[in-house]
């Protein structure tokens, strides 16, 4: 009985049904575990592992220089930049994404994303891909947009009282 000390029979061999279920479960969890390294080898969607330490001041300076160099327009006061394939930068700060990135379909970019103040969440919609943005860390996402169009970037980590107004944009051209 669960509220009494076990009867002597409790170290008897495990029943057949329990043994079958145990081994089926064991195989299942091992297969599931192996699926993670295998996905890294065979598939294209993997969590990025490259990151650098960077102070918020330094990253803000990098982003503003990057913006100045490639700016092609602006929308609601937020600069639009059209950089070549390679290193691109995105700054999260209360409550804004800077700048608006204009990318080209099928090209590969190293998107450096970091925060000027608190934690933010980088969420591309409606693709629905989500990454954490942490101040002090430059997280490098290697992305290759396969579709053209306009995408929204949302903040999905609570970042303060204006959290629900923190939206940005990503444009992918043909």
């Amino acid at each position: 009985m669960p509220i009494h000390s076990p009867e002597k029979v409790w170290w008897k061999p495990i029943g057949r049904q329990e043994r079958i279920w145990f081994w089926v479960s064991f195989v299942f969890v091992i297969v599931m575990f192996i699926s993670m390294p295998i996905w890294h080898l065979l598939a294209d969607q993997n969590t990025p592992h490259l990151s650098y330490r960077v102070t918020p001041e330094r990253f803000t300076a990098i982003v503003s220089e990057f913006t100045k160099r490639y700016q092609v327009g602006s929308e609601n006061g937020i600069p639009i930049v059209h950089p070549p394939a390679g290193e691109i930068y995105l700054l999260a700060r209360q409550y804004q994404w800077m700048p608006i990135l204009e990318l080209e379909k099928g090209k590969t970019y190293h998107l450096h994303v970091s925060s000027a103040d608190v934690n933010h969440g980088f969420s591309i919609q409606p693709v629905n891909m989500n990454f954490q943005v942490v101040p002090g860390y430059d997280y490098v996402l290697e992305i290759t947009p396969p579709d053209a169009g306009e995408f929204t970037i949302l903040c999905n980590e609570f970042c303060g009282i204006g959290h629900h107004k923190m939206s940005g944009k990503l444009i992918v051209k043909e």
């Binding site: 937020i78 919609q125 629905n128 959290h163 629900h164 107004k165």
Partner: peptide, 23 residues
Amino acid sequence: ALGVPRRIVDAFYEGAPIEVAFP
């Protein structure tokens, strides 16, 4: 699954710099 964030007062994004519309 359609992208709505958690911990957010509503999903209307009123007054946000970029308009947001969910399905």
